[in-house]
């Protein structure tokens, strides 16, 4: 087994400049930034599923888009299979096009991520066309067929000439997955792949992803806002708040023994489908502050139920609590 991590992210920053009013730019006021991702580091082993969890505005989708190069990073390094993702580097590197051959992304909205005027065959074959692979028509048909088969769309031939609007949401998401798998990628970045699907369909897609992972050993970065999905799916969980990772660790450990007060609150409000188990819930008041003007000190302190004075001044870093379990909170100490 290859020991090089599939993916390593070091000190990733992604700021989006805020459009300035004309008056402000004439007055030469400093440009402000939306700090979508603010110093995030993590690594992903081969065959591992890392779930990145957080509410909207926490930076999780930006991380996904930056990983695949849809957004240029502001600062930091992304290392894919030991090679820096940057075609101009002196070190061993990998270009975007190469990266996109070996890493694929699944988007949230299956209604939006398929070209409405392309047939399913064209959509699934597109990655092959783009990368100039399997030029022989017969072989290409076979590759598309097996990708659709693997994605659970059988018989595959029935789907070749159909258009996305003829399919249901679950089927469309399967097409997206087939199209992502046709290149046999090593890394899959899934951005909320089931959040727009019906519950009964959701389970099918999750089971499909899990099967693919077991069969092919691909690594998955799974972006979601839903802790309950994560519980079922991930090896490790990273919880994000306002552009930072506040806790990361093995899934079971994070869910059953959460350390950061934000993680605790998130877990407590995750709906449990049993009225007999209505629990004590920690409902945080207010909403996530705006990522342009971050709170001083710990960025969670204004909403934190257990914040103390020092939280207003010191910005906590992730500290290792147990093997592989880290949290960024001043009140948490190594056990």
């Amino acid at each position: 087994m290859n020991q090089t991590p599939m993916l390593e992210v070091r000190g990733l920053y992604k700021y989006f400049p805020v459009h300035q009013a004309l008056a402000d730019s004439l007055m030469r006021r400093p440009h402000s930034n939306v700090k979508a991702v603010d110093d995030v580091s993590f690594s992903l082993a081969r065959g591992e599923v890392l779930a990145v969890v957080g509410e909207s505005g926490c930076g999780k989708t930006t991380i996904a888009r930056t990983l695949i190069g849809l957004e240029a990073l502001t600062k930091g390094e992304i290392v894919f299979d030991g090679k820096l993702v940057n075609a101009h580097s002196q070190q061993p590197h990998i270009g975007l096009k190469q990266l996109r051959k070996r890493a694929q992304m699944i988007f949230q909205d299956p209604y939006e991520s398929l070209n409405p005027r392309a047939t399913i065959f064209e959509i699934v074959a597109e990655p092959l066309v783009v990368h100039g692979m399997i030029k022989d028509r017969k072989e290409r048909v076979a590759a598309v067929k097996s990708a659709l088969d693997d994605a659970g769309l059988r018989p595959a031939e029935d789907y070749f000439m159909r258009y996305p609007h003829e399919l249901s949401g679950g089927q469309r998401q399967r097409v997206v997955i087939a199209s992502a798998m046709v290149l046999q990628p090593e890394l899959l970045i899934a951005d909320e792949p089931v959040s727009m699907l019906d519950v009964s369909i959701r389970a099918e897609i999750l089971n499909l992803l899990r099967d693919l992972r077991q069969k092919r050993g691909i690594s998955i970065v799974f972006i979601t806002h839903d802790l309950s999905t994560v519980a079922y799916f991930a090896d490790r969980i990273a919880v994000m708040y306002l552009g930072r990772m506040v806790e990361i660790g093995p899934a079971r450990e994070v869910l059953q023994n959460p350390q950061h007060p934000y993680t605790k609150a998130l877990i407590s409000v995750a709906p449990v489908p049993n009225p007999r188990l209505r629990r004590e819930r920690v409902i945080l008041q207010g909403e996530t502050p705006n990522p342009i003007n971050l709170p001083s000190g710990c960025r969670f302190h204004p909403r934190c139920p257990v914040a103390v004075d020092m939280c207003k001044e010191n910005d906590p870093q992730l500290i290792e609590l147990k093997q592989g379990h880290q949290a960024a909170c001043l009140l948490v100490t190594k056990s």
Binding site: Y232, R252, V272
Partner: peptide, 12 residues
């Protein structure tokens, strides 16, 4: 089919 955060690792 409903994932339950209180039972991680369950099959769906």
């Amino acid at each position: 089919a409903f994932p339950d955060v209180s039972k991680p690792g369950d099959t769906l």
